[in-house]
Design a protein around this nucleic acid. Structure first.
Length: 573
RNA sequence: UGCCCGAUAGUGUAAUGGCAGCACAGCAGAUUCUGACUCUGCUUGUCUAGGUUCGAGUCCUAGUCGGGCAGCCA
């Protein structure tokens, strides 16, 4: 769904979109085609979300297409589990926004993503063509020798002894590499470019390597696999991609991307590569390797743990796709590598949730409040608003009874200055109900507050004679008679430091309080909570039903994010 | 001491040779049956040095600082 805040946002503009617009104006291509090319070796995270929104965004703004393509050229690292999660995550992120430009392959009636591995045969033919042109050769050097021959950034490399091998010999060897005649690493196909180039990637880079390994998509059909540089540019070309957008670390690969395509003397217009700076939010990590570590070391419950910066974690946390899109779009597209304050994301999430969340009352750390002048068994119906942000807000009823629960935070025996909540002898409004005055505090044997007693000004309820009576504070509550208990998971940032790597190891800065589980008292209508719905527990934050662990008789709620709390921040408390 | 890329408030970003703006964060206040939302005000910026120009954040040169590149990973 496109939400109002997203719809109202101005069309994004950045240096890549400027280039695309120019190409559209000069009719350089028949249509604009981009692609999102993840390697299925991990779950997608917030950084990928930026790439998805950029690529699909450009496609939808130009009536083009964005292909979803698995960049699966390394069988030893990839798995179908990741293919499936990628598909789910992309569909969720673009749903209602860019599904109409999603480029997929039709396979026997149903849709499937593109796979670079589906092009292995064509890619092999292109490699043969390159050999025939004298632009590639089979090299017998092993990996260590290749590294030695490559030189270093400030020292040119040396030419391989096999560099001038006759074309026919390379052709024969390459065919035998495919046939499985040689073990892993015995030979490789290399581009014949320039061992003296200041750009390392132009020093006869490896194009194909031998890997006797099964591939998650092609099975055992191949023991010869193309490298990223060879497969990527040609996959783009095969699919008719016009703008191949990637992150900054591939900038030095661009000359190779162009070299391969140009060397092949292809008939159609060539795709071009453009690079942008990836998204790095503070208080989190976006490295697949490190995210895998968090999962494997059980620092989190899995890839979709609501604290994870993965798209699946963000979804489970209760963050709407539109909010994620709006955030990754709002940070812009530049070539400046920066760290984006997570506060910007949190703001976007609150903005989206404030507009759509249903207000409910929930008490996280219950303390009993007994209202002396309400007889036992009596229920005073009160009208509560579902969402005051709506033009014509809907309402529901909550019953005020003799015994209610309030949050422990909302009562203080020794309140700090400017404390607006309940205190001995003080009064406070029970939201949607009436004003109560604290008359007595009952403690248990250990000295803890066991029960608070008060009297209510029954006329201060909406519609009553004292409805307009003002008090400093208003607190939420639930009726002890009708509230039910449920598990509520209070999530916080996964790391305590803006830069989790500050001390050298991100595991040292994990936030020990990133998850707190409480048994809360919830207002009865929350029994009908739905997974797609977003709720605001009044004065506390935004919550949603946990998609994985909830059952109909045992709901589990996740806190997506707290409300902004200037009182807590003021330091007065 | 190779090559490539970058640098605008605390953070992110805009200004395409012509008034340095926006959002977030922060601070102060108003409002409030959510210490939320909303509203008002405030603080804070063009890395440095030269050059071109009537005029430079923008163009040129040099420097400084930061990032990337030496996988048969992507």
């Amino acid at each position: 769904m496109i939400e109002p805040t997203e719809a109202a946002a101005p069309a994004p503009s950045d240096f890549i979109r400027d280039i695309v617009s120019q190409h559209v104006a000069e009719k350089r291509y028949p249509g604009i085609v981009t692609r999102f090319p993840p390697e299925p070796n991990g779950y997608l995270h917030i950084g990928h979300a930026k790439s998805i929104c950029l690529n699909f965004g450009i496609a939808r703004e130009n009536a083009g297409r964005c292909n979803l393509r698995m960049d699966d050229t390394n069988p030893t690292k990839e798995d179908v589990e990741y293919v499936d999660s990628i598909l789910t995550d992309v569909r969720w992120l673009i749903a209602g926004w860019a599904d109409h430009v999603l480029g997929m392959r039709s396979v026997s009636g149903s849709e499937a993503p593109y796979y670079a591995s589906d092009y292995f045969e064509q890619l092999y033919e292109y490699a043969v063509a390159l050999i025939r042109k004298g632009r590639a050769y089979v090299c017998d050097l092993n990996a260590e020798e290749t590294e030695l021959y490559r030189g270093s950034p400030d020292k040119p490399g040396r030419e391989s002894p096999h560099r001038s091998r006759p074309v026919a010999e390379s052709l024969d060897l390459f065919q035998r590499m495919r046939a499985g005649e040689f073990p892993d690493g015995a030979r490789a196909l290399k581009a014949k470019i320039d061992m003296g180039s200041p750009n390392i990637w132009l020093r006869d880079p490896v194009l194909y390597r031998i890997r006797h390994a099964s591939h998650h998509h092609t099975g055992d059909a191949w023991c010869l696999y193309p490298m990223y540089d060879f497969a990527h540019c040609l996959s783009d070309y095969i699919e008719g991609v016009t703008h191949s957008i990637c992150t900054l670390e591939f900038e030095v690969h661009r000359p190779l991307y162009d070299w391969i395509l140009e060397s092949l003397e292809l008939p159609r217009a060539l795709p071009r590569q453009y690079e942008f700076a990836k998204l790095i939010p503070s208080y989190t990590i976006v490295s697949k390797r490190k995210l895998i570590q968090l999962v494997n070391e059980k620092s989190v419950s899995g890839w979709d743990d609501p604290r994870m910066p993965t798209i699946s974690g963000i979804r489970r946390r209760g963050i709407p796709a539109a909010a994620l899109r709006r955030f990754v779009t709002s940070v812009g597209v530049t070539k400046y590598e920066s760290v984006t304050e997570i506060a910007l994301f949190e703001h976007t999430v609150r903005e989206a949730l404030n507009a759509l969340a249903l207000r409910r009352m929930a008490v996280l750390r219950p303390v009993k409040l007994v209202i002396a002048n309400i007889p036992e068994g009596e229920a005073i119906p009160c009208e509560a608003v579902d969402n005051p942000q709506d033009d014509n807000p809907r309402t529901r009823h909550v019953d005020l009874t003799r015994e209610v629960f309030i949050d422990a935070d909302d009562f203080s025996e020794a309140p700090p200055p400017k404390y607006f909540r309940l205190k001995p002898g003080g009064d406070v409004r029970l939201k949607y109900a009436c004003i109560v005055t604290c008359t007595e505090v009952v403690k248990d044997a250990s000295g803890r507050v066991a029960e608070i007693r008060c009297t209510a000004d029954l006329d201060s309820k909406a519609g009553g004679a004292n409805a307009a009576r003002k008090v400093k504070g208003t607190i939420h509550w639930v009726s002890a008679a009708s509230a039910f208990e449920a598990e509520v998971r209070l999530y916080d940032r996964l790391f305590t430091q803006a830069d989790p790597e500050i001390g050298g190891d991100f595991r040292q800065t994990l936030n020990p309080h990133s998850l707190e589980v409480v048994t809360a008292k919830l207002e009865p209508c929350l029994r009908d909570a739905r997974a797609e719905e977003r709720y605001q527990f009044e004065r506390l934050g935004y919550f949603t039903l946990d998609s994985a662990d909830s059952t109909p008789d045992r709901p589990v709620f996740n806190r997506t994010i707290t409300l902004r709390d200037t009182w807590a921040k003021s330091g007065d408390r």
